[in-house]
Amino acid sequence: MRLYKIPVQVFVQKCDCLDTLQTFDGQVSGELIQASAGEDVRFPLSEDCRKGHGALYLHLKDGSTQIVASLAGNWKPGRAHTDRVIVSSDALILKNVDLNDQGLYEFTCEKKNTELTDLQVFVPSEVVVSEGEDATLSCRSITLGQSVKSARWRRNGELLLELNGRTREITYGRGFNESRVSVPSGWYQRANLSLTLKRAEVKDQGAYYCDIDKAEKHRSAVRLIVRVIVPKSVTTLQQPTPAPLSPECPYWTWTTFLITAAGFVIVGLLAWLIWNKMFKGSTRGAGGETSQREEGMNLRGVSNGGGLLSNSQRGGRGCRGQRTERDQQQMFMLNGFH
């Protein structure tokens, strides 16, 4: 929202009511408020408007009037502004203004009229730059044959630059000079009164208003957005990246892998040897018992059959038994036994 003291041209129809302005066609002193659509606008309260009876009126260009708020001990919003008027200790605040809120506002309190307030609402274009870059805020309007009196750039109620259309002289606002703000030198021929803001800073953000006083008045607005550049060191701290591997890292990685693999192989071999030894020992023990058992049986067979014959040989037929005895005798004789 921007607040300025300027002459306001008004045209109001005649009416005998106390609630409307008296008939006149001329210049009166008033305030100019420039605001972007969606902003809140503040209307200061005088001492007479803080108690008693009164109203805040909106005078439209067709001559009609709307009651924005009324005072009867306490301020209350009008029908067309329900839930949009906030009352503070020293002002009425109109919330979320739009293009239909443009017009002349007037307080009438204790039957006294206050000076007019001209509210102008803009839908600003946007310009986005990075911190440190130059920003160009557009303001273009017909200048040839328009008898340009002046052109002004403002922000937050402060004058940045004012151009005298007749002398071409430029006046700079407090804290600004030609090294920070400028308009094209050929503005009159090119119909270009755009503002160049050099080395934009974060504090430069906001809505900028261009006013050209000429035969056909021109007013426009531009919203400047300045992106903050985060230093690389801060970015690194916020989002740390893994440190690069040193040349020794691959060597140590393979060495660790080989040592681990060798350890597993050694443990596996030891387990296999222990298991194999235990298995063979148990098999050998079982085989010894079997051999001893068979040897005992053979000895018994020899003692029962004369020392050389088996049980199966003795269990044959009679003739075989007889031949066997003769064979035994012959064998004894051959071995020196009689």
Rank of each mutant, 00 (worst) to 15 (best):
V87Y: 01
L144K: 15
E158Q: 15
F11S: 14
V87D: 04
R154T: 14
Q239E: 09
A55R: 13
G26A: 08
Q13F: 09
T171M: 14
D25N: 13
T253F: 07
H338G: 12
F337K: 11
F176R: 03
L334C: 13
Q322W: 02
F11P: 04
S147W: 08
C17D: 08
E295N: 14
C109D: 04
H59P: 00
A221G: 08
S46F: 01
H53I: 13
G38W: 04
T114D: 06
D134M: 09
K112H: 08
G285S: 08
I212S: 02
G145M: 09
L119W: 02
E126M: 07
C249D: 09
V85L: 12
P77Y: 00
Y4W: 12
N311I: 13
P124M: 09
G268W: 00
S246V: 06
R168P: 06
V302N: 07
C109F: 04
G26Q: 07
G175Y: 04
S291D: 06
T167W: 02
S150N: 06
W153S: 09
S125Q: 05
D40E: 08
Q329V: 15
M331P: 05
E325G: 09
I33E: 02
E106Y: 02
Q328N: 12
F107C: 03
S46L: 10
W75R: 03
S220F: 03
N192C: 08
Q66Y: 01
S282H: 07
G38P: 11
V267G: 06
G305P: 05
L195E: 01
K76S: 10
V265G: 06
S89W: 03
Q27W: 14
L309T: 00
A243F: 03
I67P: 02
Q292N: 10
G206H: 04
M297A: 06
K95R: 15
W153N: 05
A215Q: 12
L18D: 14
G165D: 05
K214D: 03
E295P: 00
V41M: 04
L197M: 08
E325I: 15
W153H: 01
R42D: 05
N335T: 14
V87R: 00
K149F: 04
S36P: 09
T117M: 11
S312R: 15
M278G: 13
K14G: 11
V230F: 07
Q322T: 14
K217M: 06
E106N: 15
K76C: 03
L99S: 12
C17P: 00
D134Y: 09
F122T: 01
G30W: 00
A80C: 13
I142Q: 11
H59D: 08
